[in-house]
């Protein structure tokens, strides 16, 4: 049992986390950050559930949080696979790079506000291959008596 003071405060924290997660999932474009925002919303819901559960002395809310954890784990496994597949095919973690599921007659979404990729791609020195070609032909190595 917890006092009502703690209940309202915990509810407030849950609400803040939920809204922050909502803003994150609406605005951010990186697939993984979007996923983190969704998890943030789940955290807010968990706090709320536990607070009510403790307030009422009923264990149902905590049981529900256990299921939230389970679902989050499943979600992470499946989502990560799809994110990885998207990354493997496009080389980007951008949500808008993943447009293969749109309707056939719809045009492709093109980002106009996207800044140019000004990341410096490091150019590594190309060293000449190490070693020298072995002399003679391979057939002579048959007669070789030592290495």
């Amino acid at each position: 049992m917890i006092p009502a003071t703690l209940l309202t405060n915990a509810l407030l924290v849950g609400a803040v986390l939920f809204c922050l997660g909502l803003v994150g999932i609406l605005t951010r474009r990186n697939l993984i950050v979007m996923f983190l925002s969704a998890e943030l919303m789940l955290q807010g819901v968990s706090v709320t559930l536990v607070a009510w559960s403790r307030y009422h002395g009923d264990w149902g809310g905590q049981v529900l949080v256990v299921f939230v954890l389970t679902v989050a784990a499943c979600e992470a496994a499946v989502a990560l696979v799809f994110v990885l597949q998207a990354f493997a095919s496009t080389g980007r973690l951008d949500a808008s790079a993943w447009q293969a599921l749109r309707e056939e007659n719809l045009p492709r979404v093109i980002d106009h506000g996207l800044p140019a990729d000004d990341r410096v791609v490091p150019t590594w020195p190309h060293l000449s291959p190490a070693g020298v070609l072995p002399e003679g032909d391979d057939s002579r190595s048959l007669e070789r008596d030592h290495v």
Partner: peptide
């Protein structure tokens, strides 16, 4: 580095 899509938001 930071990808372009991390520097803007919808």
């Amino acid at each position: 580095g930071m990808a372009p899509y991390d520097r803007v938001s919808n």
